[in-house]
C-alpha cells in the first residue's frame, strides 16, 4: 500500500490517507483480506504523526473498509461497501466542487464545463483503455 502525502494540499493529512485508500480499493489495487501496514509502520514511512494514521484507520474501520482485530492486524474488508455508486459519487463530490468553483471564478458556464469533461475524457481514452 503506497500512499503519498502532500503538505501543500489543503486537505487534512488523515483525510488524504482515507481518500487514497478508498481510491486504491476502487482501482482494485487493494484486495479483500490484504494486510494493511500497522499504524506505526505507515506513520514512519510517511513521516507523519501516528495519531493521524490512527485517526484515518479508525475512520476507514467505521466505514467498514478496514477491520482491526487484536493480534490479527489490520485487514481490508468488505470492498463491496465501497463500490456502491453512492460512495463513489461521494468521493467525486469534492473535486467536482473544486472544479465548479474554478469555473465560477472564471465565468465558465456549467455547459462548457461538461463539454470540457467530455473532451478531456476523449483525450484520455487511448491511454487508459484496458
Amino acid at each position: 500500500m503506497q500512499l503519498r502525502i502532500s503538505i501543500q494540499d489543503g486537505t487534512p493529512i488523515y483525510q488524504q490517507i482515507v481518500e487514497q485508500v478508498k481510491y486504491l480499493v476502487a482501482a482494485g489495487r487493494l484486495k479483500l483480506g490484504d494486510d494493511i501496514p500497522p499504524i506505526r509502520v505507515l506513520a514512519e514511512q510517511l513521516r507523519i504523526n501516528p495519531n493521524t494514521v490512527a485517526r484515518a484507520y479508525l475512520e476507514l474501520e467505521r466505514e467498514g473498509i478496514f477491520t482491526m482485530r487484536q493480534g490479527f492486524g489490520t485487514k481490508l474488508a468488505q470492498v463491496k461497501v465501497l463500490l456502491t455508486r453512492r460512495e463513489k459519487l461521494r468521493l467525486l463530490a469534492e473535486p467536482a466542487d473544486r472544479l465548479l468553483t474554478h469555473a465560477h471564478h472564471l465565468d465558465v458556464s456549467l455547459d462548457e464545463v461538461i463539454a470540457l469533461l467530455r473532451e478531456r475524457d476523449a483525450a484520455m481514452q487511448p491511454k487508459s483503455s484496458q
Binding site: 502525502i5 499504524i39 506505526r40 506513520a43 514512519e44 504523526n49 501516528p50
Partner: peptide
Amino acid sequence: IIRTVADEGRTVLFSSHLLDEVERVAD
C-alpha cells in the same frame, strides 16, 4: 519523534521553524 508517540502514547513538545516538519508530525 514518531516512534516516541507510537510507543505507548508518549507526549512530545518540539519547537521548530521548519514548518513542514511541524505540519507532518504535530497534532
